[in-house]
Nucleic acid binder design. Sequence first.
DNA 1: GGCCACGATGTCAACGCTGTCTAAGTCTGT
DNA 2: ACAGACTTAGACAGCGTTGACATCGTGGCC
Lengths: 341, 341
Amino acid sequence: MTMQQRATLEDVARLAGVSSKTVSRVFTHRELVAAETVERVLTASKRLRFRPNPLARGLRRGGATNTVGFIIGELSNPFYYKVAAGIERELALSGLSLVVATTDDSPEGEERVAEALLGQRIGALLLIPVADDQSYLEGERHLGTPVITIDRPARNLVADSLVLANHRGVFDATTRLLARGHRRIGYVCNPASVYTQAERLRGYRDALAAYGITDSARWERLADDLSVPAERLVADLLEGPDAPTALITGNNRITIGALRVLRGRPDEGSIALVGFDDFDTADVLGVTVVSYDPVELGRSAARLTIERTRDPAGFTRQLELPTWVVERGSGERAPDERTSV
Amino acid sequence: MTMQQRATLEDVARLAGVSSKTVSRVFTHRELVAAETVERVLTASKRLRFRPNPLARGLRRGGATNTVGFIIGELSNPFYYKVAAGIERELALSGLSLVVATTDDSPEGEERVAEALLGQRIGALLLIPVADDQSYLEGERHLGTPVITIDRPARNLVADSLVLANHRGVFDATTRLLARGHRRIGYVCNPASVYTQAERLRGYRDALAAYGITDSARWERLADDLSVPAERLVADLLEGPDAPTALITGNNRITIGALRVLRGRPDEGSIALVGFDDFDTADVLGVTVVSYDPVELGRSAARLTIERTRDPAGFTRQLELPTWVVERGSGERAPDERTSV
DNA sequence: GGCCACGATGTCAACGCTGTCTAAGTCTGT
DNA sequence: ACAGACTTAGACAGCGTTGACATCGTGGCC
């Protein structure tokens, strides 16, 4: 196979019998070139398969690349990839492309990966913060690179952010369970110390407090070590005389873990369950969830990014995306008389 | 907020009291610079937050960017993203980054998006072909951009490809059902005309043929229009006196559709079911599937890409990734005596 | 008829970096 | 003390493109 050389403006210019500048103009300010010349240049370009070199163009124009970086924990997690998909869709409408980089949800990975992306002169940086501190991005922000965080606010960094109505969603879900008569409501999550989970937990506690229940700690099973399986936390909660009649799970991993545990138990059909995050087969399994639109989360983040690119010095904004309860049965069970007080 | 100017080699050189070439050397061939000079340059770089401009570097070095493009069909399918995750992981090990672009599974989208990515001078192009013809990439291949197709071979284009052992997986699954006594085995898929589905269907037919069954068309429900819901195809198959005792579904969308249909039926527990593609809650639902490792598919594709980049003119390769049956109960049911012949 | 405005094209330099070549300094061995 | 080798650093050009500015011809207008 013979490797050809890539054609440049100069090559096209020679073939079309014009100067390279004219060819350049055809590809940028076509209206300044006579129609007949445009025609000739385009024919020549097609023949040589010419494509403007974005490196040279970017260098000359002195700007960043038209790529946006997205730092993501784990691309195979449905939440993350749906967000990524939304971002990509929205960026594509503005002719931008998306570079994804994963960190395996590790704080050290975040900074390392951010450095790598910034080294590529991305036009903006989107990230789902994992580390406790994003101040390492401060310098870059001053150089004009917009930074937008998704799902969690940045810490020690002024940045736009887009989060879910975590508190509201869990508050509503808990209130519904209370309204159906549940009083012993369990809450399981892992990891518990991240922003989203802290907000959800607050929603749960606030709802209980509104019903005068302040000792919910008994029914909370919070872990931080991801190696602790969701199954163990749920199983532990369901043991003992004080077992809850309803269960709220902080994310879809825990929800699925809870389903595994409940599956083998005699009280499977009697414990109410509401999970945070929707998932593909939740309807088949009849699981009530606090839902939201992850694709829309990505799209909104992308829109925010584009706005910020146009006005780098404007006021930063913190937006919240709605969540809602989707009733599918598991959350609408009344407390089991045999076990309730 | 004051926008700062980005530092260049020249700025660093001035501050460190050396020439810009020396600074350049520090960032590329450090071993050619005296240790003490390196020290001074690095201090100056850090102070000015200098980062080499990849555009200028890329332009000068005359190569492509260190980005690999991946064209992905639609956003809601986990398969694509698991593959993307594998690609990203593997590329990161070699310091490459991944740009993703989606096409909505439309053939026209594929070419348009490919053009957009190639315009960015990506170092290689990975894609899951949707269009019937990839000859539009022929020119680019001659310019040295490696093209690797995943899941399906390219058509009218010489390119490396990586596919699943589709035939083998379905052949095995069907054979197992036959061995358990099933003789009326249904096969549902949509879309049916794509390569992967054609291969799977072949696996199904070949297995039946080995048992002397050649009139399987009666139990095949193949559609090509994605707007035909999987539920309808499955429901249609299960009606009538000739209803199958076992069911094979061509992909996870159909499998989940089948579960929805079966859920409400009296014979729910008696019809054997084997789905192609694993999915998150398949274990909870006890669904037997033909499984494979999509992340590994991505990783292998990335490795192939890297090898091809090193040896652009070498022989193209077609690799196949294994598939296997995961037994979870639904596929191990014997034919129901009441309905079997 | 001379002047200006305007459209269409060209010339030149520079974006930031690195390969090639050269120069200056340092160290051997005789 | 000096040629030769080796180390270290700088000068220069050019990667492909585009902004600033120049040029040239045409036509309209006083």
